[in-house]
Write a protein that binds this DNA or RNA. Structure first.
Length: 106
DNA sequence: ATGTTGACCGACT
DNA sequence: GAGTCGGCCAACA
């Protein structure tokens, strides 16, 4: 299948684009969907991403913390601002409530 | 081509 | 609780 020919990089983007507003996903969960344990590649894909169509602000780490090296805007502050704008509330300065906002696929 | 690094995670000590 | 290591894979020097 052509779909399987796609590299992780592309599949990450496809997955992230499907995250609905007001929800977040973790790198590990995305990696799992892709059939790998390589969450680093997911983060790497985001780091290299410059496509505003990809809601990379909805991707957080396992602790629910936003990325310090967030590539868009001014950094994690930009990411936080976007999430707040979608109704995602923060427990701490950098941590979202995964219990409420983690998008779980069934 | 080889070795290091990376917006990470889970398991182990 | 904190530190270390392995995993898996693409970019970079």
């Amino acid at each position: 299948m052509t779909n399987q020919k796609l590299k992780l990089f592309d599949r990450v983007y496809e997955t992230v684009k499907k995250i609905p507003e007001g929800k977040v996903m973790t790198y590990g969960q995305i990696a799992e969907i892709l059939g790998t344990h390589d969450a680093r590649k997911v983060g790497w894909a985001m780091h290299g991403n410059k496509d505003p169509r990809i809601p990379c602000h909805r991707v957080v780490n396992r602790k629910g913390a936003v990325a310090v090296n967030y590539a868009f805007g001014g950094g994690w502050k930009e990411q936080k601002m976007r999430l707040l704008s979608e109704g995602v509330k923060f427990k701490d300065e950098m941590h979202v409530d995964l219990k409420k906002y983690l998008w779980q696929i069934r």
